[in-house]
Design a protein around this nucleic acid. Structure first.
Length: 577
DNA sequence: GCCGTTTTCGGCCCGACTGTTTTCAGTCG
């Protein structure tokens, strides 16, 4: 059992305990335990099996949770979770995803109405029954109905990072089959979409068909949906991600890759182009319409070439102008991960990060970066132990000192992620902000303002002379919270005018900005940074999702400030007009 | 339930908003 799954069981148990109104500190311990398990570099299952090692050596795991971990690894669940699932319906965990309902309200609804499904909850709201309960009213019913609608749209999709880890895991298992040469993910994962509906894996090799048999017997397959000669489908993992595995002959691999990578809109447009040229394109190859003779099939390059086009990077294949651009030879040069020279938004234990300044710097150095910016939270984020003026300035001095010593082996800029308050003012005084190398401004509160008010708020924030970067500009949390409404184009244009860069937040839960907005902002003259917002050294690896997202926004290295060398980046920070 | 002891219990535990209220519980970050 993988750490991520173990962590999920712990977190679910904590959720259920919360509905059952159990001791809040115990719940907190379960949550801490979940995050400790998830961020532990070694597999918990391996540690449990090794008599020489102890899980209790992991901070946050004591005797109690050690026993729980044993149980989870052995049975996939634990006693407390099982007991609570007898008391509450298994859908209780789904109810927690409905915004506006917390554990207390859910417990009350269960107790009073004896319902167990989201559909029943919807009915309650429509029939205006929720308001019978204390402290619940018409506004809440409306909010819950809106939230249920959003929930339905989201369920059935998965974060890019989750789909990628599943693809990696399955690829490794299938590559171990003799006679399998390559396993390649296609579909929206290959295009780098921020969420993925299902996973397509293309298998080649003399014995590719045998990979299908291995796949359907894979331990984490929950339900086999179909298993034929060339294709097998199954729901995999507790989350039930649908995975389609296809065995392909090498001679038509390129055509299949092209076909299964999509997007559907891109393919329709490409096939229309083929028809106009007297050709037809399918997953088996590109053929002459007149005599069905094969033109190209083995590689994607050969197919695009036969259609008079250069190869189009998968990130661009959304039929949003890429085919025209390719035909006219003006596809953009896209940024690559190796061109990123620094990560300029991250947190440390000074606020809510999980590693020290030294550990974050060292992790960044190991990734080959030239520089980092440490941007801990400001005081408005009290739960994160945000910095007030005094602490922010003192911490900046400490960072400068370490930087001067050169002992960390990497250049460090002192920064802050300063909250943008409800009225657009900065959370910290100008004097304090002036002490810092780099100010990222972010919205973390009051996200339900009217669009006009939110636009004014952001425009006012841009007036701050010290603001350099607008952090996660739309505030969305994928599959969880929609972007807050505001006039993006106006804000992007104003940011461009004032020389404030827009962040492409590489956290797989955010990917904010996303491709379409990036393109729109670039058209307004905006420039960008790609940053991970890391709260742990391992989060630095999320940079690749940010780069993929930037590529989906048609960005090249010149659009992105943290592809600059350290000295140039430093100059850019300080050369504010 | 974890942690850390001036070692076996006590601390952990913030702050603002919202909607429903007549003084505040619940949610959220």
């Amino acid at each position: 059992m993988e750490n991520k799954e173990i962590a999920r069981v712990l977190a679910e148990t904590a959720d259920l305990m919360e509905i059952a109104a159990e001791d809040s500190f115990r719940i907190r311990s379960y949550r801490n335990g979940a995050s400790a398990v998830e961020s532990n570099p070694d597999r918990i299952e391996d540690i449990l099996r090794d008599p020489a090692r102890k899980v209790t050596d992991i901070p946050g795991i004591g005797k109690g949770l050690a026993a729980v971990l044993e149980q989870i690894v052995a049975t996939g669940s634990c006693d407390r979770r099982d007991q609570l699932l007898e008391k509450f319906p298994p859908t209780a965990l789904e109810f927690l995803k409905i915004q506006g309902l917390g554990p207390k309200s859910i417990a009350l609804i269960f107790e009073h109405f004896r319902i167990s499904t989201i559909d029943q909850l919807e009915t309650l709201c429509r029939e205006q029954k929720l308001r019978e309960l204390p402290r619940m009213g018409a506004k809440l019913e409306e909010k819950v109905l809106r939230s249920i609608a959003q929930y339905r749209v989201r369920s059935g999709r998965y974060l890019l990072s989750y789909a990628e880890s599943m693809a990696d895991e399955l690829s490794a298992a299938l590559l171990a089959v003799e006679g399998v040469e390559a396993v390649t993910p296609a579909g929206s994962l290959r295009r780098g979409r921020e969420t993925v509906g299902d996973l397509d894996l293309l298998v080649t090799g003399p014995n590719a068909t045998r990979a299908l048999a291995t796949f359907v017997k894979y331990p984490r397959v929950e339900e086999v949906l179909g298993h034929g000669e060339n294709k097998a489908s199954a729901k995999v993992g507790r989350e039930g991600l649908q995975v389609d595995v296809r065995a392909l002959p090498p001679e038509s691999f390129g055509a299949a890759m092209q076909y299964f990578t999509g997007s559907k809109d891109h393919n329709v447009a490409i096939r229309t182009r083929a028809v106009r040229m007297g050709l037809k394109l399918s997953e088996y190859g590109l053929f002459r319409s007149s005599d069905d003779s094969l033109v190209a099939a083995a590689t994607e390059e050969s197919i695009y070439q036969a259609l008079g086009l250069p190869w189009i990077p998968p990130e661009l294949r959304e039929n949003s102008g890429e085919i025209e651009a390719a035909a006219e030879g003006r596809l953009p040069e896209l940024v690559e991960l190796s061109q990123v020279r620094g990560d300029v938004h991250m947190h440390t234990t000074e606020t809510d990060g999980r590693a020290s300044l030294e550990e974050m710097a060292e992790a960044a150095r190991q990734r080959g970066y030239e520089y980092v910016a440490i941007t801990d939270h400001s005081k408005a984020l009290a739960m994160a132990n945000g910095l007030d003026e005094t602490r922010a300035v003192a911490f900046a001095r400490q960072i400068r000192e370490r930087n001067r010593e050169g002992s960390l082996g990497i250049r460090i800029f002192s920064g802050i992620e300063c909250d943008i308050l409800k009225d657009g003012a900065m959370d910290l005084s100008d004097d304090a902000l002036a002490e810092l190398d780099l100010v990222v401004g972010s919205v973390h509160s009051h996200m339900n303002l009217e669009a006009a008010e939110m636009t004014d708020r952001l425009l006012r924030a841009l007036e701050c002379p010290h603001l350099r970067i607008l952090g996660h500009p739309t505030g969305r949390i994928l599959l969880h919270r929609d972007p807050f409404p505001f006039d993006f184009e106006r804000v992007a244009a104003e940011a461009a005018r004032r020389g404030v860069w827009l962040e492409i937040n590489a956290s797989p839960e955010r990917l904010d900005l996303h491709g379409a907005l990036i393109r729109s902002a670039k058209a307004k003259g905006a420039r960008f940074t790609i940053s991970t917002d890391a709260h742990h050294p391992k989060h630095l690896a999320n940079m690749r999702y940010g780069v993929t997202t930037a590529r989906r926004g048609w960005l090249g290295p010149k659009d992105i400030l943290n592809t600059l060398a350290a000295a140039d980046f430093a100059a850019a920070i300080h050369a504010k007009s």
